[in-house]
Amino acid sequence: MSRRGTLLLTGGNGMVGSNIREHPRAADWTILAPSSRDLDLTDATATAAYLQAEKPDIVIHAAGKVGGIQANMANPVDFLDINTTIGRNVIMGARAANVPHLINLASTCIYPRAAPGPLAEEAVLTGPLEPTNEGYALAKIMALRLCQYIRTETPDLLYKTLIPCNLYGRHDSFDAATSHMVPAVIAKLHEAQMTGHDTVDIWGDGTARREFMYAGDLADAVLRAAADMDALPDLMNVGVGHDHSVTDYYRAAAEVVDWQGTFAHDLSKPTGMKQKLCDTSRQQAWGWAPQTDLRAGMAATYQFFLERQSS
């Protein structure tokens, strides 16, 4: 029998959800993680009925349509519509079922494009968003604000939002058309290694700076938060507190993959925001920091990639 109660995890088969489920602290909970076949979160009636029937002690909302710059630019309607619909259905369904605790996962793409770094939580909605992922960002802002409004109207409902920086890790997507940068880079360099190519392209000039965190570390933060919702701030960044250039990530991946070639910069491709670095002041005050450095995280992610390739 679980020590802490029942936890409903949306997106339980995605990267974040899978890392939460395999974390040691997951054993403290009875976890419900219905697949999209079992529960269509775009169906408001079905979602509300599920929450009413199961009455979980907490919801962790990690479901959504995700992807990198290329996918966001190609499908802005889906990134806005699907994520808005899912967020609304889960949060309002939990409220209707009087679920006492909810952790909503947002993304640093919600910050204005020109917001000064490091990105502090107070900067949300203070300026225009990055155009390449605006639809996804708008949907995440809606969910964040909905949680805040519910908390204002009903203080006993602890509906709070974590804002993770960019993520990578086990259970990631390595599809070049839909994946985020780090898994895409790992897959690209692995292919170059296997095919003997000695040059790999980098989108843009490689100077844009990004903060990437290993997904297993986010799982650790989420499950710690779930165990003590009173101590968790209503809105909090979750990050590593430092960043690297895009070229640095390519170099780190090349080391892990053992590829010895050179990089060429494709200046015709977009690079997105020049820098996205979280202000981790609230996280530090909360008393948490990620434990996986870039080299170890890259190695674990590449190992997962190889296991998936061989299966």
Score class of each variant (00 low, 15 high):
Asp198Arg: 13
Asp175Ala: 12
Ile163Ala: 04
Met181Trp: 04
Asp172Gly: 11
Ser179Thr: 15
Asp201Tyr: 02
His197Ala: 11
His197Asp: 07
His171Thr: 03
Asp175Pro: 11
Pro183Glu: 05
Asp175Ile: 13
Ser179Tyr: 07
Gly169Thr: 05
Pro164Val: 07
Val200Lys: 02
Phe174Glu: 01
Ser179Arg: 07
Tyr159Met: 10
Ala187Ser: 12
Ala187Asn: 10
Ile186Lys: 01
Lys188Gln: 15
His171Phe: 14
Lys160Ser: 04
Pro183Asn: 07
Pro183Trp: 08
Asp172Leu: 04
Phe174Ile: 01
Val185Pro: 07
Ala176Asp: 12
Thr161Ala: 03
Asn166Lys: 10
Asp198Ala: 13
Met194Phe: 05
Asp172Trp: 09
Asp201His: 03
Ile163Asp: 06
Glu191Met: 05
Lys160Trp: 06
Gly169Ile: 08
Gly169Met: 11
Ser179Lys: 03
Ala177Asn: 05
His180Pro: 05
Met194Ala: 15
Gly196Asp: 02
Asn166Ala: 14
Asp175Lys: 14
Val185Gln: 06
Asp198Lys: 12
Thr195Gly: 00
His190Thr: 10
Ser173Val: 11
Met181Ser: 06
His197Glu: 05
Asn166Gly: 13
Ser173Thr: 14
Ile163Pro: 11
Thr199Glu: 02
Ala176Leu: 14
Asp175Tyr: 12
Ile163Ser: 07
Leu157Phe: 13
Leu189Pro: 01
Gly169Arg: 04
Gly169Phe: 04
Gly196Ile: 03
Asp201Ala: 09
Val182Gly: 06
Ile163Cys: 05
His197Met: 03
Ala187Asp: 03
His171Arg: 08
Asp175Val: 14
Asp198Trp: 02
Lys160Tyr: 09
Asp201Ser: 08
Asp156Phe: 09
Thr161Asp: 04
Ile163Val: 15
Asp172Ala: 15
Leu158Cys: 14
Ile163Tyr: 02
Arg170Leu: 06
Arg170His: 12
Ser173Tyr: 01
Leu189Gly: 00
Arg170Ile: 15
Arg170Thr: 15
Gly169His: 09
Met181Gly: 03
Ala187Tyr: 06
Gly196Phe: 01
Ala184Gln: 09
His180Leu: 10
